[in-house]
Amino acid sequence: MDTNERLLHASSFGAAAVAYAEHRPDYAQAAVRWALAPAPGPRVLDLGAGTGKLTATLVALGAEVIAVEPDPGMLAELRRSLPSVRALSGSAEAIPLPDGSVDAVLAGNAMHWFDMAVAGPELARVLAPGGVLAGLWNLMDDQVDWVAGLAQVSGSAAVGPRDTPASWRAETAGMHLPKDGGPARFGAPEQAGFPHGQRRTADSLVATLATRAGVLVMPEPEQGALLGRIRAFLAGRPETARGEFTLPMLTGVLRVRRL
């Protein structure tokens, strides 16, 4: 994905902020705890916080959270749903916080949008020594037969290279971590996956996939055709044809420590 395409995809979510808040999953608490485990203190920046999916989990775990989000539509939804959280306009490339002011920076389904050539020194700047940088991604467990079929029918626009466990491990193994933190440096990256799930119906799963960037930027006729194929697939599977079901997932975590 070139720079212009990446920016187009990254800026697509604001118009769908309400649907994103309603349909996107939260994050497995065990995954968030693992991400934070080496942090030297409780101060956490949720960077690229979107509508607050990860923010809410951090609050539930007792972290002192500041949320930073560049998209006005997503930020407004976050402020509406989590009014007690300090939520600021900003980006990974221009973080509106002082030097050494947080013990951890977490990013939920967002780190792949960062321009690490610019963001790397910014992340190092705001992290206290020994602080943790971690990206979290919710992954569809394609070891389950019907989920593998869904991924195949959905194509890369709806189920991309960071959306299933094996491809996520390959795609994130150092790709989205800072290559240079200025005077500061980062240690070796670690990956881990944690079981998770989301209660869905066929309609709500289609609505979830419709909030993926690759789908949001599609021309309307192509988008409608894709969602129609997904809907037909779900209607033809006994696991998903009627009522509620659990979408099997993992929350994958990539973490690194600031030295």
Rank of each mutant, 00 (worst) to 15 (best):
V65C: 03
V65L: 02
I66G: 00
I66V: 15
P70K: 05
D71L: 13
P72H: 03
P72C: 07
M74K: 03
M74H: 00
L75M: 13
L75C: 13
L78T: 06
R80L: 11
R80N: 12
R80E: 09
P83S: 05
S84E: 15
A87S: 14
A87V: 00
S89D: 11
G90I: 01
S91L: 08
S91I: 07
S91T: 13
A92W: 02
A94Y: 06
I95H: 05
D99Y: 05
V105I: 11
V105K: 01
N109W: 05
A110M: 07
H112A: 04
H112W: 06
F114Y: 02
D115Q: 13
D115A: 13
M116L: 15
P121C: 11
E122Q: 12
L123T: 07
A128V: 08
A128E: 06
P129V: 07
G131E: 09
V132N: 01
V132D: 00
L133E: 09
A134Y: 01
G135R: 03
W137M: 08
W137H: 10
N138K: 03
N138P: 06
L139G: 06
L139F: 10
D141M: 01
Q143H: 12
D145I: 02
W146S: 02
W146V: 04
V147E: 01
G149C: 08
L150D: 00
A151K: 12
A151F: 08
V153C: 08
S154A: 15
S154W: 06
S156K: 15
A157G: 10
A158L: 10
P161T: 04
P165N: 06
A166D: 15
W168E: 02
W168R: 03
R169W: 08
R169N: 10
R169E: 14
A170W: 11
A170V: 15
T172Q: 10
A173D: 15
G174L: 13
H176W: 15
H176L: 14
K179L: 15
K179P: 09
K179D: 14
P183N: 14
P183T: 14
P183R: 14
A184M: 12
A184K: 04
G187Q: 04
A188C: 12
P189F: 00
P189R: 06
E190Y: 03
A192M: 11
G193R: 09
P195W: 00
G197C: 09
G197W: 02
G197F: 07
R199Y: 00
R200L: 08
R200K: 11
R200D: 08
D203M: 07
S204L: 01
L205V: 02
L205H: 01
V206H: 05
L209V: 06
L209W: 00
A210V: 07
A210F: 05
